[in-house]
Design a protein around this nucleic acid. Structure first.
Length: 205
DNA sequence: CGGAAGATCCACT
DNA sequence: GTGGATCTTCCGA
């Protein structure tokens, strides 16, 4: 079984939408204090660089914060938002294009108790409580700006083959939380596994 | 240099 | 469904 074999850098250097859909079912592996935490990616969003008003690379803007977003595909882009949350992106395509895929939700595979401990919760955990949201996902895996710009094909945070899904079970819909983005807000760039209970929000249909 | 916004989450009604 | 928390980052003046 090659589920824990890291994906090669080449994987990330295809078109962003192609990579986004192909990331579903893959494993996001985090080595922390000698333990291996694993999430199966179940929901992502594609961000299409300079031409995408919802992207941090809109109109080609480069700042200190989004520097890694313009690197060659295969590295992480981690940013801090709302004064308290981190979001993890996978940079895609070629250097300079500013394309990336936001990892929005994961299904716990290993290290569930530890990941729950990283999260604040009162009631008994329900699906989606561990990593059903971009901020939650980073909390569960203890991902912060320290990973910004680091490669995802090896190291303490990496993406492995996991359990790829058929394109037939991939549901596309508009992205979340970007209502300000005009026409881009309607683009169907959110991808999720049909019927999965660990997504950040219910899927259409 | 100040103001405003933000790829979110949680608690409460 | 609504509102508050919380603070870095960015842009305009």
């Amino acid at each position: 079984m090659g589920r824990y074999r890291a994906l090669p850098t080449k994987f990330f250097r295809r078109s962003t939408q192609e990579v986004a859909a192909d990331l579903l079912g893959r494993f996001l592996v985090r080595d922390l204090d000698g333990e291996r935490l694993v999430l199966r990616i179940v929901e992502v969003e594609a961000y299409l660089g300079a031409r995408d008003r919802a992207s941090h690379a809109w109109q080609g803007r480069r700042t200190e914060r989004n520097r890694s977003l313009f690197e060659e595909g295969g590295v992480a882009y981690v940013y801090f938002i709302y004064g308290m949350h981190y979001c993890l992106n996978v940079v895609t395509g070629r250097s300079g294009n500013g394309d990336a895929v936001l990892l929005r939700a994961g299904e716990p595979i290993a290290g569930v108790e530890t990941m729950l401990g990283h999260r604040c919760w009162r009631r008994s955990p329900r699906p989606g409580d561990v990593a059903g949201g971009p901020g939650k996902l980073c909390q569960a895996l203890k991902v912060d700006r320290g990973f910004d710009g680091s490669p995802l094909s090896h190291g303490d945070l990496r993406i492995t083959e996991g359990e790829p899904v058929s394109p037939k079970v991939v549901i596309a819909s508009p992205r979340i939380g970007i209502g300000y983005a005009g026409e881009a807000a309607t683009w169907p760039l959110r991808f999720a596994i049909e019927g999965n209970r660990h997504v950040s929000r219910p899927l259409p249909g």
